[in-house]
Design a protein around this nucleic acid. Structure first.
Lengths: 63, 63
DNA sequence: TGTCTATGTAAAGCTTACTTTACTTTATGG
DNA sequence: CCATAAAGTAAAGTAAGCTTTACATAGACA
């Protein structure tokens, strides 16, 4: 899956750590999702979408 | 997470096995998602949404 | 009755998501 | 130069998603 998380986070001026704190996951999980090493779980994808006030489909695209 | 998969599948007249075949997962996975034993992965949630021609948010809701 | 289909669930095993710890690199500011 | 913050990654462990096999139950139908 492709995603625009890094851009969304950058637009907010947040570090991976700060985003991890908001999402209640580790900064390594944020990094892994941004760098495409793995996809978030569905509950985490929902949390991300809500945080950035958009839909899951806005952020994540099937490759 | 709550979901309306069972209703959507019923509307199509499909068995859990038939849906599993379309999604390329086992019928037990379909059953587990419908009965709320676990959530699908994000890629599988995308497949489900596309199959029923709607968004992930249409089908899955945070509890 | 017996059989077939659909559903629910459990156990064991594998893969993927996620955590903690830790090391490295790059950039920035003193 | 040194210190700090941010980012990337790796290893080891836990948790969750998914598979296969298997057994049980309920309904439809000959």
């Amino acid at each position: 899956m492709d995603n625009t998380l890094k851009t969304l986070r950058g637009d907010k001026g947040w570090s991976q750590q700060a985003l991890g704190d908001l999402l209640e996951v580790s900064r390594q999980s944020v990094n892994a999702i941004e760098t495409g090493r793995y996809d978030p779980s569905l509950p985490l994808a929902f949390k991300i979408a809500r945080l950035f006030d958009c839909t899951i489909e806005d952020i994540f695209k099937e490759t």
